[in-house]
Nucleic acid binder design. Structure first.
Lengths: 146, 146
DNA sequence: TTCCAGGTGGGAAAAAGTGGGAAATTTTGA
DNA sequence: TCAAAATTTCCCACTTTTTCCCACCTGGAA
């Protein structure tokens, strides 16, 4: 299970270390995609197989005939990349993904159970700030949903 | 699986490199056709067999009886070309296809799972911009289609 | 205070992208 | 029908980017 928050720097070659704690649970390669709320999702290849497999079986044999599937697949697959974890545990963030979430030098790597999320540090802090107050309200809501 | 986005230049002989990551999954030849939404589809020869077979026999063994299929298939098949990947991994874009999608110097090559798409860079950016917001709505829709 | 694990940085080698010359082929016009 | 011109194809070479590997630094633990 991937948990915890780690702050690391991107070097000038766009490499960022996967925190050692995460590294053990992720194999040799990972898949990076744009996530929701302006962050990147990092999946293990297994998890990616599961996600993309679940989605493609909804695609018909000729998925390009449907507009909604074209839009969806272009955004999902077109913006994903498989990257190798280097010998000392770093991954390379492609420029177009870096730009997409406004990532500069400082990144927050966050374990969210089955995936890792990468945030630019300022957006991460802002997000935590903004959602902190909601937390207890959401808890109440979850409790009453029972 | 073909994923990711790569920006490359066409040289003045209309050659564009297939990104190395794609090259490994595509054989010696590919088929290029006009795609949908103002891009080109690039299929491996295998994938092309599958796609063209499925289209030819769509709905009936005698697709030429339907006007809409005649229109669609004439555009798809009539404008398709098989091109060879050269010794260092480039493909040649025929002029009429280049013109069809308004391709100038800068091209985006996008992996969409089972095919590669070629876009003129400005149209690709515009398309992503315009469709990004739809993505989560389509995701919800796909999820509820179960 | 020394050792170790993890993070940071950078050099060198390899791979990939870009451009262009020359041979081969096709087209054109006499 | 042939020769000249133009286009296409094939290959080579240069440049840039990426990858791989090594070394250093830092902070925490023994």
């Amino acid at each position: 299970m991937l948990i915890g928050e780690y702050i690391h720097r991107l070097d000038e070659k766009n490499r960022v270390p996967l925190p050692a704690k995460f590294r053990r649970e992720m194999g040799k390669n990972v898949v990076i995609t744009p996530g929701l709320d302006n962050c990147l999702f990092v999946f293990t290849t297994n998890e990616w197989e599961r996600v993309s497999g679940a989605l493609t079986h909804k695609n018909s044999e000729l998925s390009f005939l449907r507009r909604d599937l074209r839009v969806f697949n272009r955004n999902l697959f077109g913006q994903a990349t498989e990257v190798e974890i280097d010998s000392i545990g770093r991954i390379l963030i492609p420029n177009f993904l870096k730009d997409k979430i406004g990532l500069k030098e400082e990144a927050a790597l966050v374990g969210v159970g089955d995936r890792v999320e990468i945030w630019s540090l300022p957006s991460w802090k802002k997000y935590l700030d903004e959602t902190e107050k909601e937390q207890s309200a959401i808890a109440e809501k979850l409790a009453s949903d029972e």
